[in-house]
Design a protein around this nucleic acid. Structure first.
Lengths: 132, 132, 132, 132
DNA sequence: GTGGTCTAGACCACG
DNA sequence: GTGGTCTAGACCACG
């Protein structure tokens, strides 16, 4: 299901990154199941009212990151089994992402005590991931 | 102390944003103290081997975000009083940052159980902020 | 409509701030409607006979203040939803602006009685804003 | 009395303009009376912990605008009888100042209804001016 | 000395 | 086509 994808014109992320993240997120929370067929580039572009090249680029990066599998002439399928990065790389990237978040939270004057409940709530959405 | 600032030319963040984040982080963890004088635009530009305009832009954004005070003819000082955003905006931005982090963590196959210790450790660095 | 923008080279405000204020004002009085496309950086620069960087800087500050949305590769659109500042900050800034005005008015030997009608007349232009 | 003068390091106004405005304001609200002797450049510079040149410049502009009267060797006195500008110029400058204020207020999402009480309160300070 | 503004012009990212 | 980044370098305002 890609029905939930929406473009925020005021985002600082380029459109293709917004599409990338929303599809990746839907895969990660189990909204999009492994093997599921994604809409064609043209179909999704039409629905989101964006340039087909933009959708194509999002799909391309999703394929590069192993989130989807593009099968010539058949379509684009949810692939995502598991992350192929080395332990070291996984940890490194996780720390970078975590640091960015904490810096922003600190800038916004959030304390750990305030963040904890936000975190708990958001985590629930990703829990489906846990069993894997 | 701004000795730790370093530029990654291969980063997806522009140079001025890298400088911005590194200084902001140092202020938020208390590495740079309120009232402290930052290196001059020219001095930092020379050290980082970037154009003075690039450093000036980073300083400028730090100033508009209330992290530093820029004083014509004197220099740039650490300011950081508190966030001027509305509750609504603070929460909105925190959620965006949190979602970005969690999606990345999920993509990297981290489970909440694995993230928790990383989080606890990283928080400590920002705890100095808490008393405010 | 941005036809009315004009640059005073003898002003104490820098060019990019003049552009900033004139566009912001047009948005606030409803002359520029939400969603409307602004002239491109290059087009406006040519019209005003200033460097494109100068226009870009004005647009950039308008974007960070939520007055416009900048969309990579598409253009810049009128956004203006609402102010994201805290009550405290809104009040603080309003007072600063008010004090500046009243001091100038007093310097010019205006009495409250003289100012009142000027104020009433000028307010009408911003009234469109009120329903929001 | 110039005891109330204070420098805000985080202001976007240069120091000499801050001094200028604070003295001018004190004269306009009657805090500083006509004929009163102001502190010497050196004395005020020492008190405010700023460069004497900075104070000198503020005094110079106050003299140019007819707010103070610098008497060689005797000192600097509050002059201020009345504004010497033409009707046309007074009105023009008042309108510019008013427009700047209203634009800022509108940007901050203030409505005329909210501004009115702020205005009434601030006006009281300048009422001493009224009888002139 | 300090930071702020502006120009000219290159090059890239996005759609 | 669009906006975003960066450099090089001039010149000004401030202290």
């Amino acid at each position: 299901m890609t029905a939930g994808i929406s473009i925020a014109t005021d985002s600082d992320l380029p459109i293709y990154r917004q599409i990338y993240h929303q599809i990746r997120r839907n895969v990660l929370i189990g909204e999009l199941k492994e093997g599921e067929l994604l809409p064609s580039v043209r179909a999704l572009a039409e629905r989101l009212v964006v340039n087909p090249n933009t959708v194509a680029r999002a799909y391309q990066e999703l394929a590069r990151d192993g989130v989807v599998d593009s099968q010539q002439g058949r379509g684009i399928f949810v692939a995502r089994v598991k992350c192929v990065l080395s332990e070291e790389e996984r940890l490194r990237r996780c720390r970078i992402a975590l640091d960015l978040f904490l810096e922003e939270a600190a800038f916004l004057d959030f304390t750990p005590e305030e963040i904890r409940p936000l975190l708990e709530r958001s985590w629930r959405r990703f829990k489906k991931q846990e069993g894997k």
